[in-house]
Amino acid sequence: PTIVLKVSPEELKALEKAGVEIEKIEKNEDGELYITLTPEALKKAGFE
Rank of each mutant, 00 (worst) to 15 (best):
P1Y: 15
P1A: 12
P1R: 13
P1T: 12
P1I: 11
P1K: 13
P1H: 10
P1F: 15
P1V: 12
T2M: 15
T2K: 08
T2I: 12
I3C: 13
I3W: 14
I3P: 01
I3Y: 12
V4D: 02
V4N: 03
V4C: 09
V4A: 04
V4T: 12
V4I: 08
V4S: 05
L5Q: 02
L5F: 13
L5R: 09
L5P: 00
L5Y: 13
L5W: 14
L5H: 02
K6P: 01
K6E: 01
K6S: 05
K6W: 13
V7E: 00
V7H: 00
V7M: 08
V7S: 02
S8Q: 05
S8N: 07
S8I: 02
S8Y: 03
S8V: 03
P9V: 08
P9T: 08
P9L: 07
E10W: 15
E10H: 10
E10C: 15
E10P: 04
E11V: 15
E11H: 13
E11C: 15
E11G: 10
E11W: 14
E11Y: 15
L12R: 01
L12C: 03
L12V: 05
L12A: 03
L12K: 02
K13V: 11
K13T: 10
K13E: 10
K13G: 07
K13S: 10
K13A: 12
A14P: 00
A14V: 14
A14G: 07
A14Q: 13
A14W: 15
L15Q: 00
L15D: 00
L15E: 00
E16H: 12
E16S: 12
E16W: 15
E16I: 13
E16Q: 13
K17F: 11
K17D: 10
K17V: 11
A18V: 05
A18P: 00
A18C: 14
A18F: 11
A18E: 06
A18K: 14
G19H: 07
G19Q: 06
G19T: 02
G19A: 05
G19K: 07
V20E: 00
V20C: 06
V20Q: 01
V20R: 01
V20M: 03
V20T: 03
E21A: 08
E21H: 07
E21R: 06
E21I: 07
I22Y: 09
I22W: 08
I22D: 00
E23Y: 15
E23I: 12
E23C: 11
E23P: 03
E23R: 08
E23T: 08
E23G: 07
K24A: 11
K24E: 05
K24W: 10
K24I: 07
K24N: 10
I25Q: 03
I25Y: 06
I25W: 07
I25H: 02
E26M: 08
E26S: 10
E26C: 14
E26W: 15
E26P: 01
E26Q: 09
K27R: 12
N28V: 05
N28S: 10
N28K: 11
N28E: 04
E29F: 10
E29A: 12
E29I: 10
E29Q: 11
D30Y: 13
D30M: 13
D30H: 12
D30N: 13
D30G: 10
D30T: 12
D30P: 03
G31H: 03
G31T: 02
G31M: 03
G31C: 06
G31L: 03
G31F: 02
E32D: 12
E32H: 14
E32L: 12
E32M: 14
L33C: 06
L33T: 11
L33A: 04
L33Q: 03
L33M: 08
L33F: 10
Y34Q: 05
Y34V: 07
Y34D: 01
Y34E: 05
I35H: 00
I35L: 06
I35D: 00
I35T: 01
T36L: 07
T36H: 13
T36P: 00
L37F: 06
L37R: 00
L37W: 02
L37C: 04
L37D: 00
L37I: 11
T38E: 04
T38M: 04
P39H: 15
P39Y: 15
P39W: 15
P39N: 11
P39G: 09
E40M: 09
E40R: 04
E40K: 04
E40H: 06
A41F: 03
A41S: 07
A41Q: 12
A41L: 02
L42C: 10
L42F: 15
L42Y: 15
L42S: 04
L42K: 03
L42R: 04
K43M: 12
K43H: 09
K43P: 02
K43C: 07
K43I: 10
K43T: 08
K43V: 08
K44G: 07
K44N: 10
K44Q: 07
K44Y: 03
K44E: 08
K44A: 08
K44D: 13
A45G: 10
A45D: 03
A45N: 03
A45K: 03
G46E: 04
G46H: 04
G46I: 04
G46D: 08
G46C: 11
G46S: 02
F47A: 07
F47S: 05
E48Y: 03
E48H: 04
